[in-house]
Design a binder for these strands. Structure first.
Lengths: 329, 329
DNA sequence: CTGAAAGCGCTTACAG
DNA sequence: CTGAAAGCGCTTACAG
């Protein structure tokens, strides 16, 4: 492999000068500059970023920790992150926890050992060990999706999104509204969205039937099963609408209703959250909420880049959203 | 930051010994080992992988070059890659060309400068400069999706998949079969799939109507537009089936047909390729072909890891596929 | 079983 | 405008 020393020798200068020319730092005569650039060209010399990173303590790499790579939300967010960081010649070091909390912590340390300049975590839960690992890491850090105490966070407006959707369902005349949620380990999805629903029901003096509230695990199948439990458990009395906290589960729910011969939305209306591509093309098209995941990724990246230049206090940003009315309600 | 020197000092040994203990290479007395491990624990010492990489010439990082991050195919493949490499404690450095050929080349060089141990390229085109850049890089390299000359490649069986799908359409009684494809810059999708269709039509003495052959650009919208051109251009005589080379375009095509009041499959049958999640949940469910993208990613990763241990001649692997009959045909 | 020394490929004060 | 030297944090022959 050719190194900076080889280039220096070939150009009859010191490697100091070569470094200066390559990085455009400090002076160098035009003549020397040209000579060096030509040799670089000829040899196809590629500087070692490991060496540079060791020396400068900067790697030009951003660590991204994902709960699950092959998910539409994740890939949109990563797309957004990449758009921003690529412009500044940063790369992304990708890491997938497969929803394992241990790995979240392990990866933070790993990314640190790889000298990433900063980390963006798509957070799915909150726990003390996570928080303290982040504090110890002492790196520019952004949490996306959960409001982590002491950590700069970008969150979706889960509570108000759920309120709006529930209100929307009511505005269509629904009074008997069911709910398919997820576990509370994920506060944003599991608690905030549920509270938005519950509070709105209460405010409007609507009865919440416990049989109509089910808990899934984000998968399409679990949405299917939850809806089955609602229909079977209802004993004749069914909700006229069901609010599902993710599109995937909503689509599972719709599948079950289709199978059983229920008309959507005439018999039972269904609404989701996420604005997945799928949501638009299922029949009927799913009423849902767009969280602008890509924009959230961009925002996270911008924030991180900013913090690379100057560190700041913890901040909290709440993303906007948009309710998309379609045919399923 | 605490370094190996700090640990050595605190443990009253040389950094040589610390290194040996940490890497489990060579001897060290139990007593010393324990002492060192305890100090590592206490200090939260994290070794610098940049330094290690500079010294050992190995980074433990695999470079992945994607045409577009936020695509279902890409995220499945990356998921597969990650599953395999994570087990061996490798990380993924992710790179997105946004379908720009220049960037493909740029990123190969960049990944090289970052001392990745190998590269997996999700290839969408073939050109000489790309090939020669890969040769020059002199790194373990896997091409996924296109058969790059001189490069170990994993390809989908595009030709036979298209043949099978066309035959399947015929077996349902269709004789007038249209085709929505893509440009030839992408040989796998643009040429092989088209040839599979054309050859099969010819073999069965079926007329291919040029008006029924359209070219899109992978987007849902382009599928919509292509179908519009087929329907409008047909002048009364329409195909009874249309084979679309990707699910997304197929779904766009279906959307247009729905809008115009055509029944699928009674009036016009539609088939795609890709087995996207969406394909299963649209109405009617789309007949398509599963390429097992995740498995392809796994295979690519395994192959690369193998080559990291011992370099081998170029090889070519053809992945298997599966036709999924659903309701759209 | 342990350590001193060299070296990986860079950058950056410092001196001229 | 240019260079010699030190040093980033590791590993690895080599010697004992």
């Amino acid at each position: 492999m050719t190194t900076i020393n080889d280039i220096a020798k070939m150009a009859n200068v010191s490697r100091t000068t070569v470094s200066r020319v390559l990085n455009n730092s400090g002076y160098a005569s035009d003549e020397v500059r040209k000579r060096i650039m030509q040799i670089v060209e000829e040899t196809g010399y590629i500087p070692s970023l490991s060496a540079k990173s060791l020396r400068t303590k900067k790697s030009g790499v951003i660590g991204v920790i994902l709960p699950k790579i092959s998910t539409e939300t994740a890939s949109r967010v990563v797309g957004g992150i990449n758009e921003i960081v690529a412009k500044e010649n940063f790369q992304i070091l990708l890491t997938d926890t497969e929803l394992d909390k241990e790995k979240e912590i392990e990866y933070i340390r790993l990314l640190q050992s790889r000298h990433v300049d900063g980390i963006i975590l798509l957070a799915t839960n909150i726990n003390d060990q996570l928080i303290s690992t982040i504090q110890d890491a002492d790196l520019p850090f952004i949490s996306l999706g959960q409001d982590l105490p002491g950590v700069t966070s970008i969150v979706y407006d889960d509570y108000h999104a759920a309120v709006d959707m529930t209100n929307m369902l009511m505005s269509k005349g629904h009074k008997k509204i069911g709910f398919i949620g997820v576990g509370e380990e994920d506060p944003s999805v599991g608690i905030l969205r549920k509270n938005g629903y519950l509070d709105t029901m209460k405010k409007n003096n609507l009865l919440v039937n416990d049989l109509w509230i089910q808990r899934g695990d984000f998968s399409i199948d679990s949405g299917y099963e939850c809806m089955k439990r609602i229909v079977r458990g209802g004993e004749g009395e069914l909700p006229t609408a069901v609010f599902v906290v993710t599109d995937r589960m909503a689509i599972g729910a719709m599948e079950y209703l289709h199978e059983q011969g229920y008309q959507i939305p005439q018999d039972i209306a269904v609404a989701g959250i996420g604005a997945s591509t799928m949501s638009r093309y299922v029949t009927p098209a799913l009423t849902t909420i767009d969280y602008f995941n890509k924009e959230a990724g961009q925002k996270a990246a911008k924030l991180l880049l900013e913090r690379l230049k100057q560190s700041k206090e913890k901040e909290k940003f709440i993303q906007t959203y948009r309710l998309i009315k379609r045919d399923s309600v």
